[in-house]
Amino acid sequence: MIEVRNIVKKYGDKYAVNDISFTVNRGEIVGFLGPNGAGKSTTMNILTGYLSATSGTVKIDGNDILEDPTKAKKLIGFLPELPPLYMDMTVKEYLDFVYDLKGCKFPRRPHINEICELIKITDVYNRMIKNLSKGYKQRVGFAQALVGNPPVLILDEPTVGLDPRQIIEIRNLVKKLGKTHTVILSTHILQEVQSVCDRIIVINKGQLVADGDAETLTYKVAGNRRLIARISGPKNEIVKTLRALDSVIFVDPMGSKEPGSYDYLVESQPNVDIRKMMFSTLANKGWPLIGLRSMDMSLEDVFVQLITNDTGEVVE
């Protein structure tokens, strides 16, 4: 549905976006993740045709955004970082204007009413936009993106500046829309991608650092697998035995949390599952394994590791 090939955006000799490529399939919700200033907004502005890339191509459902802008732009609903609202209009006038601007064909009133119901702005329908709260302004911006029912939604930080309840509402809305739309959503909030997106694209300093779903990213980035094992038995011998196992690189006693047992941090080589081996070894020795959990990296850890990874290698 969205095909981005090698886009580069240069400001002077600084790269805002440096050779980013990805494809988004129909019906996917993709989270665009990166620290502030990573190039998220620039990329989205290029996708929507607001900016032109220095080089590279963007195709929306096969329509090039530069060569066939009218067709491509008709397919996109865009919510920019700052909702593009005319303060001197009422919500009704504004949505009517966007409806005309997008040259919509289907019946006006039912369409706009439906959007207002969905976004929950019906109660401010006749109010001036400049008098609305930030949360409502953001929602009117969202409504604007939905006018014309475009199959692709590009949302630049849709929850920024909202209160926690509104954030949850917007996230649920994005999830709901994701069933019928292709969505790209940018954010620097990790819980947001975790709760909403099927797939995550991480960019940093204008470059694509990672692309995949949350679990794959965690697994790939985490590299070594870390486990925390709670074992009852003689501490020093257990450490010795575990260290002797194949594929185990590191064992460290962590302290006693439960009387008669001890916790150990066990780190194995990547892509090796040592749990069965560990269990049988301990069982043979007669040291019961009474607890075992993996110390997965949180997405936060993954993210921090990704953006501090100097090699800039793409994790696939």
Partner: peptide, 12 residues
């Protein structure tokens, strides 16, 4: 006010 974004990204 960045309203040019809604104009330029529209099919007009």
């Amino acid at each position: 006010n960045k309203t040019d974004q809604v104009l330029i990204t529209s099919p007009v």
